[in-house]
């Protein structure tokens, strides 16, 4: 289970998170929605210790992330897959090497690594692209490689940072289907940060809205669609005013 406990984070004078709290249960996918710059990605980075909170904490499997030492963080990260907004693939490595890097860190043998790379690429419908460089792939393909890199680790949790941003509607739908398939095949707990409502309704078991650094509302997609909260309604309907 992942739990945000009264998380506070500011960058300089600018407060971003001001008491964000949310519980994510095992095997569910929670989508965190909110305006650009509302702190969704900041919250996500706290889960893997990429950012240190000013106050509050994130609890993952009973461990407070901010109190973990380097070894503790390494162990925590070995159970979490992270899909970055722009994929963050290592541009000097082939697709296969991108996937293999995290597996080598876990001390797996070369044969098992090859098998897992093949399997993960097949799951994202990119079999046969292992020898290509990230620069030779389209934006959608890069995102799928990013997802494959996370899947190959067989993590307990997968964190998706804006997985459909900047993609055309069809490619976005492919990524959505992939996230659903990943949950069904691997049974992983997922946290998805997005402002794409179609994607949120498709992949989320629950949807949580982050507004002005705090949780505004959390509920099932149906509950969110029926919301009477004016802020949430304006956001999900995409109205200017």
């Amino acid at each position: 289970m992942i739990e945000f406990q009264d998380l506070h984070k500011a960058f300089g004078e600018k407060p971003v998170l001001q008491g964000f709290s949310l519980k994510i249960r095992d095997a569910e996918t929670v989508v965190v929605i909110g305006y650009s710059g509302s702190g969704k990605s900041v919250a996500l980075k706290h889960i893997v210790g990429l950012l240190h909170p000013d106050a509050g904490d994130v609890i993952v499997d009973g461990q407070a992330v901010s109190t973990l030492d380097r070894d503790g963080l390494t162990r925590l990260r070995q159970g979490i897959g992270y899909v970055f907004q722009f994929a963050a693939l290592f541009d000097s490595m082939t697709v296969a090497d991108n996937l293999a890097l995290g597996l080598r860190r876990r001390g797996l043998g070369e044969e098992e690594i090859e098998e897992r790379v093949r399997e993960a690429l097949a799951l994202v419908d990119l079999s046969g692209t292992g020898d290509r460089l990230p620069a030779e792939l389209s934006g959608g393909m890069r995102k799928r490689v990013g997802i494959a890199r996370a899947i190959a680790l067989r993590p307990r949790y997968i964190l998706y940072d804006e997985p459909t941003t900047g993609l055309d509607p069809v490619t976005s739908a492919v990524i959505d289907r992939l996230m659903v398939r990943t949950r069904e095949h691997l049974g992983v707990t997922g946290v998805v940060v997005t402002h794409d409502m179609r994607s949120a309704y498709t992949v989320g078991d629950r949807i949580a809205m982050l507004f002005e650094g705090r949780m505004r509302q959390v509920g099932t997609p149906e509950e969110i669609q029926r919301t009477e909260d004016a802020v949430v309604r304006q956001f999900i309907e995409g109205r200017a005013e």
């Binding site: 990260r77 979490i80 290592f90 541009d91």
Partner: peptide, 17 residues
Amino acid sequence: TMKVTEQVDALETLAYD
């Protein structure tokens, strides 16, 4: 370039220092 394209963060999430 690795830093601004989040490749350094990606490295950390893959449990590398």
